[in-house]
């Protein structure tokens, strides 16, 4: 009996089961955050929803008259004066489609580079691991605008990348990368790569490598082990990484704006255009934002369901 540790006592954390020192003040402690986020984010999103059903005022703003025009304009073309029979309007659907495709491609690209990187870092000796991780995360903390401008500087027609490639003889004339979908892709990939690495790293670090050894013992080669044992075990990290890359890519503004130019518009630029400049159409911008937000929420709900399922599975 003696010597057998009692687990009940000091290991007990107040947060788990006692009324606790702070529980009576809980409401007061949480109130400031609720208030600030509720008033300055939740309420604005609600107001944005309302605005998307109002009538546009030329040169910005709205007229307080209910209207479905914003959503209608999104899908149908009714001619310049709105009196022609409706035809499917492809402009905006195309922009949304392009955004989804770009975001998906960026996600795949980030995964292809990010997974081996995360895996490599997670299998370093403990004392070097955090230095590697630091190296990967530093660029994320550098201003996104500066990073995007840097990327543009690097890949422009007579920029260092082209000069380097010409010098090596890999190409005979400069690649025209700027203002292409590829440049946007590169920008998105560059912007959000750390978001893929971090969650995958976290789950690989928790992975029990004796499972891999067991697989090897049962005649699986490395790649079979990776496919059948390791990846299924780290799926939650992969899903988290994909969501974290996909969501901001979908609504990205800087990469498409600076690297893509007018031909390669994505949702972000479309929305921005409605609130800046003279072509402003606030209800339409609000509607586009609502559609974007809904798509993001769907992705997040899918993610939450995955997480819950993962927790249930242990």
């Amino acid at each position: 009996m003696a010597g057998g540790g009692d687990t009940g006592g000091a290991g007990r954390i107040a947060s788990e089961n006692t009324p606790g020192t702070w529980a009576p003040l809980r409401g007061w402690l949480l109130a400031p955050s609720w208030l600030v986020i509720g008033v300055f984010l939740l309420a604005p999103v609600g107001m944005m929803l309302v605005y998307s059903f109002l009538t546009k005022e030329f040169r910005g703003g709205v007229i307080w008259e209910l209207s479905l025009a914003a959503y209608d304009q999104f899908i149908f073309d009714r001619g310049l004066f709105g009196d022609e029979p409706p035809q499917l309007e492809w402009t905006y659907i195309t922009i949304f489609g392009r955004s989804i495709a770009q975001a998906a491609a960026a996600t795949v690209l980030c995964f292809l580079i990010g997974f081996p990187t995360a895996f490599f870092i997670a299998t370093r000796p403990v004392h070097t691991r955090s230095a590697w991780l630091f190296l990967v995360t530093v660029p994320y903390w550098v201003n996104l605008l500066i990073r995007t401008v840097s990327m543009k500087f690097l890949i422009r027609d007579n920029g260092p990348l082209n000069e380097f490639l010409l010098w090596t003889g890999a190409i005979s004339e400069p690649l025209a990368l700027v203002n292409t979908n590829l440049a946007v892709q590169l920008g998105l990939f560059y912007s959000y790569l750390p978001f893929m690495v971090l969650p995958i790293y976290a789950s690989v670090e928790r992975y029990d490598f004796t499972l891999s050894e067991a697989a090897a013992d049962l005649y699986a080669d490395r790649w079979t082990t990776l496919r059948l044992v390791l990846i299924p075990a780290v799926i939650p990290g992969i899903v988290a990484g994909c969501i974290l890359v996909f969501v901001p890519s979908l609504g990205a503004f800087l990469a498409p704006d600076l690297l893509g130019g007018a031909k390669n518009f994505m949702i972000g630029s479309l929305i921005e255009e409605q609130f800046k400049g003279n072509a402003g159409n606030w209800p339409f911008g609000a509607a586009a934002s609502m559609i974007l937000l809904s798509m993001v929420l769907v992705a997040l709900l899918y993610y939450a369901r995955q997480q819950i399922r993962g927790e249930r599975a242990g």
């Binding site: 009324p19 999103v45 934002s289």
Partner: peptide, 30 residues
């Protein structure tokens, strides 16, 4: 430290909302 309470997940969701909502949407809404 507040113990278990109703609305804890909702509170957490609210706290993470600014990260979840795409920046451009936050910008428009604000």
């Amino acid at each position: 430290r507040g113990g278990a309470f109703r609305g804890k997940s909702a509170s957490f969701a609210l706290l993470s909302l600014p990260i979840m909502v795409p920046e451009i949407v936050t910008a428009v809404a604000t």
